[in-house]
Simulated scan of single mutants.
Amino acid sequence: MVSLAPVEAAPPSKAAPAADAPAALICRNLWKVYGANAEAFLREHPEATTAEIRAAGLFAAVRDATLEIRQGEIFIIMGLSGSGKSTLVRCLSRLVEPTAGAVFYEHQNLLRMTPAELIELRRHKMGMVFQNFALLPHRTVLGNVAFPLEVQGIGKAEREERALEVIELVGLAERAGHYPRELSGGQQQRVGIARSLAAEPALWFLDEPFSALDPLIRHEMQNEFLRLQRMLSKTIVFITHDFDEAIRLGDRIAIMKDGVIIQVGTAEELMLNPASDYVSEFTRHVARAKVLTAGGVCVPVTPGEALGPAVPARSRVADVAQIVMAADAPAAVVDADGAVLGKLEKAAVIDILVGGAR
């Protein structure tokens, strides 16, 4: 008999946007090829191989990339150094001009925008944070955060009021009058994030923003990032080379190699159904219990079978392991409405826990 009273489990760190959420940012068949006459070469050889591109004296940093990033989603792009992830993000924001393809935001093709239109878009709807904090050393925290609003032509009183609100949001209200040299690395990173948020961007690009921080501060900044996202629900494109960070922060993950997007999916999808050995390598040393969900590993229920306590399908196996192991019968895996999707058995939990990383 199924117990439909849900058992308390650790809540998810973030609420994923619905799978049918509208696409906020779309790129189609995007290429970035470096070298003389790259555009003409691509027009003549739209399906050129890596060998053919190299033979022409060219280098393809991004190859035929197609993505749809949902509104309110934290979309992770990852890969080894040189995989093309940073170039892709710079093409999506047109900091780098793509060689071919299209990028759509709010039904507008960014590649057809005039320079003036693009400047307005970046000032009012896009935010960017990079590894280098790039704070202005002669300005205080308040001055740095208010700077993008100053560029927009907003009056001093209004921009400083808005800047103070964002500074408080990132927990630096007591440091508003300090200069960058008087701040720790983590605090400087928060100023960079606050400055990016000051213009209230709907679309936020972050290129390995925490990679220069030590592990303790990095974990703290990840917590801060998730807290801000729960409050603000931005559409975020986040680059990292750290799969643990991708798991913790991302709703979906794109893995790149040699300029090509190899696979896109949730962390669980990448772990359970890797498209290649290359994708498997990214998940090989990750604790499976922290990634796999009850819904992802449950099996069908035999008709008439007695089941134990109910566990939410979205719960990580690590969070419900104790519940499953303590029960006299397999746990019932249920959806948000309490409908039984399957069962989670002790043997499966033990295999995931003991197996650890694949």
Score class of each variant (00 low, 15 high):
Gln71Lys: 15
Asp20Lys: 12
Ala163His: 09
Glu224Met: 02
Asn223Ile: 07
Ile76Thr: 10
Ala275Phe: 03
Ala339His: 15
Ala199Tyr: 00
Ala36Ile: 10
Ala38Asn: 12
Val62Asn: 10
Glu52His: 01
Leu110Asp: 00
Ile77Asn: 10
Ile261Asn: 02
Glu8Thr: 04
Leu344Glu: 02
Arg28Thr: 12
Val151Cys: 07
Ala24Thr: 01
Gly259Glu: 04
Ala40His: 11
Leu142Pro: 07
Glu345Leu: 03
Glu165Pro: 09
Ala65Cys: 14
Leu307Cys: 03
Gly185Val: 06
Arg112Lys: 09
Leu25Arg: 01
Val299Lys: 05
Ile26Gln: 08
Gln152Lys: 08
Glu220Asn: 11
Gly185Tyr: 09
Glu73Thr: 03
Val297Tyr: 00
Ala306Gly: 03
Gln131Ile: 00
Arg159Ser: 08
Leu111Gln: 01
Phe59Val: 14
His285Phe: 11
Ile236Phe: 12
Asn29Ser: 15
Tyr278Met: 00
Val151His: 08
Lys125Pro: 06
Ser280Phe: 05
Glu44Thr: 11
Tyr278His: 00
Gly79Trp: 01
Ala254His: 10
Trp204Lys: 09
Gln71Gly: 06
Leu206Lys: 14
Thr87Tyr: 07
Ala61Val: 04
Phe282Asn: 07
His285Ala: 12
His219Arg: 13
Ala326Ser: 15
Ser83Cys: 01
Met78Lys: 03
Glu97Trp: 03
Ala60Trp: 02
Ala331Leu: 06
Asp207Phe: 07
Thr114Met: 04
Trp31Gln: 09
Leu353Ile: 15
Ala134Pro: 00
Glu182Ser: 08
Leu111Ile: 04
Gly177Glu: 14
Lys156Met: 13
Ala21Trp: 10
Gln152Ala: 10
Phe104His: 14
Asp337Val: 13
Leu272Ala: 05
Ser3Pro: 00
Val354Lys: 10
Glu73Gln: 08
Ala102Val: 03
Pro274Gly: 04
Asn273Tyr: 11
Arg63Ser: 10
Arg139His: 12
Glu165His: 13
Ala48Ile: 00
Ala23Ser: 15
Gly84Ala: 02
Thr235Gln: 14
Glu200Leu: 03
Leu203Glu: 05
Leu135Asn: 03
Arg230Gln: 14
Ala65His: 10
Arg248Lys: 15
Gln263Gly: 04
Ile255Cys: 03
Glu68Ser: 09
Leu58Thr: 01
Leu213Ser: 08
Pro115Asn: 07
Met78His: 06
Ala38Tyr: 07
Met271Gly: 06
Ile167Tyr: 05
Asp251Phe: 14
Leu25Ser: 01
Lys257Phe: 00
Ser280Leu: 05
Met128Arg: 02
Asp351Arg: 10
Ala275Lys: 08
Arg230Phe: 05
Ala199Leu: 05
Ala23Tyr: 08
Arg316Asp: 07
Leu118Val: 04
Ile119Phe: 08
Glu150His: 13
Val89Ile: 15
Glu150Val: 13
Glu269Ile: 06
Glu182His: 13
Ile77Gln: 09
Val89Asp: 06
Thr114Ala: 07
Glu47Gly: 02
Arg358Tyr: 04
Ser83Asp: 00
Cys91Ala: 08
Leu67His: 02
Ala173Ile: 10
Leu249Pro: 12
Ile217Trp: 03
Glu68Tyr: 05
Ala331Asn: 11
Gly186Cys: 09
Ile352Thr: 03
Leu136Glu: 03
Pro98His: 12
Ile26Tyr: 06
Asp319Cys: 14
Gln222Arg: 12
His45Gln: 01
Cys91Glu: 05
Met128Cys: 02
Ala212Val: 00
Leu58Arg: 01
Leu136His: 02
Leu121Asp: 09
Leu110Lys: 00
